[in-house]
């Protein structure tokens, strides 16, 4: 695949490639050096420093729910519980978003009617008001629906926030698919719905992967929605958990933080997202290519 694209699309300047790679790497990694260094440093500090000694103690502290000293006296944490909550929220979000975005993205791609652009724009803009101003109405609404202290409820609200973007993305992928693909399926006796599941969806693998990944990220990193909807500490997702254990004031330097475990937790936090991306990249894209080859 890449070799074909390469032959066609771009000159093969290997040197240029390396320059791009190294520049990007420097830009991405320089800020993170501190994070990585601090998560293994025996003597963590708020600034980048050469570690006095290497330790994995901070990771163990996080994974065993060891009480954290946040500048003051040690207090208990519920890391594993928070990670579970986050997994529930983002898992549900992925399921809801992938399903609904696939259906409506396909529908919007194939339907032709006046005012489609307007509808699309309205969908995209649905979450346009500043989120902080929206929290009061949202809270009242969710309380009526019983979504307070309810992880699934939170996943539903988070999904509604990320759906517009994902519908747009998937619509783009459906638009790219040649129409004769589904027409062939109809000729073979499929109806519209089964054509979608048998032929169309398998062919937008990369699109589904993107949508799944992005909705996972939005569930995993959700902050504002759980902030107002969750009232019990044991139901916190990890984003709220980090914010409550590691205190800081915006704009203030020299924070009240146990830096070692904080950074270890941040590193652990990154693992599911990256693992998911690699998994999706490897699996979904392969499936799609195989299908095309058969055809």
């Amino acid at each position: 695949m890449s070799s074909v694209l390469k032959k066609i699309g771009e000159p093969s300047y290997t040197l240029l490639e390396y320059v791009v790679l190294i520049t990007l790497m420097i830009y991405v990694l320089t800020p993170l050096l501190w994070l990585l260094e601090t998560s293994v440093n025996t003597d963590p500090t708020p600034y980048l420093s050469i570690p006095k000694g290497i330790t994995i103690d901070h990771f163990i502290a996080v994974l065993t729910n060891r009480p954290i000293t946040g500048g003051y006296a040690a207090h208990p944490v519920y890391m594993t519980r928070w990670i579970m909550n986050s997994l529930i929220i983002s898992g549900t979000t992925v399921i809801i978003v992938v399903m609904l975005a696939a259906l409506s993205g396909y529908s919007l791609s194939r339907l032709r009617f006046k005012g489609k652009n307007l509808l699309m724009t309205l969908i995209l803009l649905s979450g346009f008001m500043p989120r902080m101003a929206m929290i009061l109405p949202l809270f009242k609404l969710c309380r009526t629906l019983g979504f307070v202290d309810n992880l699934i409820g939170i996943a539903i609200v988070v999904s509604s926030g990320t759906l517009p973007t994902q519908i747009w993305i998937l619509k783009g992928f459906f638009d790219q698919l040649p129409r004769d693909l589904e027409e062939q399926a109809w000729i073979c006796g499929c109806d519209r719905i089964s054509a979608v599941f048998r032929v169309i969806l398998p062919n937008v693998g990369p699109g589904l992967a993107v949508v799944a990944f992005m909705s996972f990220l939005s569930g995993w990193g959700a902050f504002t929605v759980p902030l107002i909807l969750i009232r019990r500490e044991y139901l916190f997702p990890i984003s709220l958990g980090i914010a409550s254990v590691f205190i800081h004031n915006p704009g203030e330097i020299g924070l009240v933080v146990d830096y070692g475990p904080t950074c270890a937790l941040a590193v652990l936090y990154a693992v599911p997202s990256i693992a998911l991306y690699i998994l999706l990249r490897e699996r979904l894209m392969e499936i799609r290519l195989a299908r095309l080859e058969v055809r």
């Binding site: 991405v28 993170l32 902050f223 933080v257 990256i274």
Partner: peptide, 23 residues
């Protein structure tokens, strides 16, 4: 390389201030 490129959006948003203040 893909994993490294993804890191900024994979670490918690709440940590970005710490990371950038140290920068």
């Amino acid at each position: 390389i893909a994993a490294v490129f993804l890191l900024p959006s994979a670490i918690p948003g709440i940590m970005h201030p710490y990371v950038w203040i140290s920068m």
